[in-house]
Design a protein around this nucleic acid. Structure first.
Lengths: 223, 223, 223, 223
DNA sequence: TATGAATGAGTTTTCATTCAT
DNA sequence: AATGAATGAAAACTCATTCAT
């Protein structure tokens, strides 16, 4: 391996180092309270070096956002990749993947959640923003696909797939956010319970075979 | 009316002036980018005067939050106050009130949303947060009441009312937030459509009289 | 008593009220941390009223300083007013009066001590300052008088009376200040002990009758 | 010498620059009236740079205090380092060193004096004050040592050494403070005179060989 | 490439003093 | 005389970003 390739690798590693430090600090202290110095200190590099890899504080945040979406997309895709899954169990799997994402990668979850609210504050440059929107839409497309296939196979009742996608995503997001804000646990209900309940309520309206199954109630659709 | 009453009135008016300025600036520039100077400039008072009415930047923010919740609670209560409304139509009315709140008082909505994200950050120094939490819970209680009454009257299937409340609120919040992020309109779906769809999907699972009605499908439940 | 006289009395009382409040606040919080608002709040008057009686924050401080000196002068004069006291016991009495002043009127003591260090900071107007210096000198003159009389009567050895006065005052002040800064008690020596020791050491050098008394050591000079 | 050493040296120099500026400004304007801006302006650096070297306004003040004590301690130790000095001449030498310190380093003296007055105020937030107290006590220990040795050699009469130390220090401090307040020069007595007089008066009471010397009065004890 | 010292605009908050009522 | 709301200058401190080495 030549020096050039080696040094490219080094660079990548260094960038990763800074990103990881950033993720942690942004998560523990919030955007506002995170300083470049804290990040570089944790990463063990100098402030100057930071600006070698990122144009600004904003940019590292955006990069983490993109990474977060990417990570969740991977989890979602993996969750529905098993052959022979029904549409409803796929949707359920995505919801639970989101829950796991929230539980196991809270730092990324927070970064994702924060960015929604603060596009103005972050003075997001439109090109960056466009990229991010695109990534978010890709994600939604995965859900829409499941619904579309479900309708095609007759498993789901006919509906506007894009609307339904947004409804489902909004529901999931709303619930997880609620949990993240600790309004739920406090009242003695776990997020897992809530998701189960929501899916049950929702799927009832989507299920194209309800009538059939109502005569054979053994079948479980929600995990 | 004597001098004293006059001056109390004046003070109230002045506080209102500052609050209104704050609401606008917080909305257009976000919390962080809002400075006391910008607020007082818009309100036409001096910096010193600001601190005559509010202890800190945080306090005015919290006050606006409380005002926002109060405003929405009024709208929600008004929306379900008509005699003879069914539980489902009441829930629908609340959802639509939330939509109207978002549409007509976006500034307040943004402030509410922001606080969701930063409770931890803002909580630290504040004695207000307990009060605010209480106000938020009061709001949820309104929804829960509707559900409880619906179950009692047999209109809704039996369910855990607090769970269902949180699911509904999470759904509404998730959808409106989605709209706020402007991911939805872009794709050609209005929030109104989405809410309608969500309610339809959801209510299907809650409706205790579905079977009966399925034989007489004329009845409309969603506005 | 007419209305005019009555209202003059009222004014005097009101001024006193503010002065007392000021004394307490200045003492507990220091000059810098004392605000006009805190003073007026404690005095139960409005901020505006304060400026009816004092031109500035500085002026009330100066007034308290003058009052403090006056108070101590009274104590010193009273302490040496007993007929038949020797010069040395008079000096001792003054030293102990200073100790009592420090103990019982610490607020005034602190105000006196502080002003020494901060003439520049207080931007003392020269006329006020002159008045205060005059009052301080009056005080020293009392000590000088005792010494002068002691020398005249042969009780004290001949010496430059003004020098000796300053030495004595410097000694007393130095000791009490030391105690006030808590450098002394901490080390297990009380101020009273210290003063006794200092006087003993000092008077030995001033005593014109030492030799005589050294043959008759029963006589006690220090209280 | 490499870049690193060079830069360390530079940093030291820069810190010195700021300290010197601070010393001057604190001296001419007092603590309160000294602003960071004035210090940095005089030092020719930016505000940010100030905070690179000192955590706060308080910290630079404390640092100057420590430097001042250190400087005086050096002077005091040097003054008594000549072999063959008697205890009384050592004490005299320390007193005169204090006088020289006051004359030649009034800025430091003022800072020391101020801190005496405001220990409480400054102490609150500072971890330095313990260190500073310690330094002050070290200083007093030097005096105590001289006294202790004087007693051991029979030159001084037996006495409580710590009390005597405090008395002497109080005396010196009191006199110099008196001079600093400019109450003395005004009246036509120099501080030098005063110190001489004070020492003469004081040493009379400490001298263990007085009687012997009284028969041979040629010997001079005070410089 | 990497460093980290230097920058300085920008922010919140305080408080002595004024002045209309 | 008395009030107290209003003022606004001033001050300590932060931190993203730059740039000489």
């Amino acid at each position: 391996m030549g020096t050039r390739a080696r040094s490219l690798e080094d660079k990548e590693q260094r960038k990763r180092l800074i990103l990881d430090a950033g993720k942690e600090i942004f998560f523990t202290r919030g955007y506002r309270d995170t300083t470049i110095e804290k990040i570089t200190e944790r990463a063990g590099v100098s402030t100057g070096t930071f600006y070698l890899y990122f144009k600004s504080k904003q940019e590292i945040y955006m990069t983490l956002y993109a990474d977060g979406i990417e990570l969740f997309r991977g989890m979602a895709e993996e969750a529905i990749s098993w052959p022979g899954m029904s549409a409803l169990s796929r949707l359920s799997a995505i919801a639970h993947a989101y829950y796991r994402f929230y539980k196991n990668h809270t730092e990324y979850f927070e970064i994702l959640a924060f960015i929604h609210m603060h596009q103005a504050e972050l003075k997001v440059k439109s090109d960056m923003s466009a990229l991010l929107d695109e990534k978010a839409i890709e994600l939604l497309k995965i859900i829409e696909n499941v619904i579309r296939e479900g309708i095609a196979s007759g498993e789901l009742v006919p509906m506007d797939t894009w609307k339904a996608t947004n409804v489902l995503w909004g529901l999931m997001d709303g619930l997880v956010m609620l949990a993240a804000r600790e309004n739920v646990m406090v009242m003695g209900v776990t997020l897992e319970d809530l998701i189960k309940q929501a899916l049950q309520m929702m799927f009832y309206g989507m299920d194209g075979r309800r009538e059939a199954r109502e005569e054979d109630p053994d079948e479980e659709i929600v995990q």
